[in-house]
């Protein structure tokens, strides 16, 4: 099925209004878009984090599909158990339906503390989709650096100071780490390119086995930009090639959006308070380094695609 806006506008929301996310929350958009594709017969597991906290304050819930939250680092292991139960009960005839199983986690719960559980789940081959909403830091606890935080970004545990200019390490490339698990489908998406993202969710849904999508979901509170700019910030990350949209299907890389007008990464950085310090004196060379890395990674991706790898 193609992703059709007209049809989607009639579709029921399964991640509904009433949750308590901030105005301009990128991750909330990521959840809503995924659930619009996945539909009613979906079970969701969640790691501890912003989206868990804002969506299920007892006795309320924003979820109209079954939902389970256990701990911070075990969303993938939790969904492994749900899948095992599903297989066992289906085999015994106690469940008849086909059900989508989606595990969600933020970047902290996925790149860092939950990486082991995710790696195990992907290696074991559970029939599930894992979606990481990536806002590039531990936002729920107050903007601490994570393995997803980009080089140069100032967070509360990688603050820019008189001698250290923000985060000194580069971020992990989680999509490639997941692709290296030899799973049938791994992809990178962004909430700005909803059709691309939703198509990827739909595609993942149609593939049997373990699937992984990391969706770029800006956080206005942690990145220090105007809250009405969330989609713009996500869009500029794609257009600057900082966040390429691509997928790895059965080991083969495919870029799903080649931005026509490429913008300098500096244009994207300067809209965000977390990079403000990079525009002062000596730190400017960091912007050049970031641009070099963005170009290098894009080239690498292009070469992989051209080589059919």
């Amino acid at each position: 099925m193609g992703i059709n806006l007209k049809e989607l506008s009639k579709q029921e929301d399964f991640f509904t209004s009433g949750h308590r996310a901030c105005a301009g929350c990128g991750p909330a958009i990521a959840l809503r878009q995924a659930l619009l594709v996945a539909g009613k017969d979906t079970v969701v597991s969640f790691s501890t984090g912003c989206m868990e906290v804002v969506s299920t304050i007892f006795p309320y819930t924003a979820w109209k599909v079954p939902y389970i939250h256990s701990l911070f680092e075990n969303s993938a292991a939790t969904m492994s158990g749900v899948e095992a139960a599903y297989n066992a009960l289906k085999r015994k005839g106690k469940i008849k339906k086909d059900i989508n199983l989606i595990a969600f986690g933020g970047d902290g719960g996925t790149y860092d503390i939950g990486l082991q559980a995710l790696s195990g789940a992907m290696e074991r081959g559970h029939n599930m989709l894992y979606i990481c909403y990536d806002n590039q830091a531990y936002m729920n606890t107050g903007i601490q650096r994570s393995g997803a935080t980009p080089y140069g970004a100032s967070t509360t545990t990688s603050p820019s100071g008189k001698v250290i200019p923000g985060k000194t390490r580069r971020r992990k490339d989680l999509t490639e780490i997941m692709a290296a698990h030899n799973i049938p489908y791994a992809a990178q998406a962004s909430i700005s390119d909803w059709r691309d993202y939703m198509t990827k969710v739909e595609k993942a849904r149609s593939i049997k086995g373990p699937k992984f999508i990391v969706v770029f979901a800006p956080c206005q509170l942690g990145w220090y930009y105007k809250k009405e700019d969330t989609i713009k910030i996500a869009d500029m990350a794609v257009k600057s090639r900082f966040w390429p949209l691509y997928e790895v299907e059965n080991g083969v890389h495919k870029i799903t959006k080649d931005p026509k007008k490429v913008i300098p990464v500096e244009d994207w950085l300067k809209l965000q308070g977390r990079f403000r310090h990079l525009f002062k004196g000596e730190n400017k060379k960091i912007i050049e380094e970031i641009q070099r890395e963005v170009d290098m990674r894009w080239e690498r991706l292009k070469k992989l695609e051209e080589a059919g790898l």
Binding site: V43, S45, I68, S70, L71, N74, A77, T78, M79, S80, G81, V82, A84, A85, Y86, A88, L89, K94, A117
Partner: peptide, 11 residues
């Protein structure tokens, strides 16, 4: 974690 979730799933 997997056992706990499976129990919540009715197993």
């Amino acid at each position: 974690s997997a056992c706990t979730a499976a129990a919540a799933a009715g197993a």
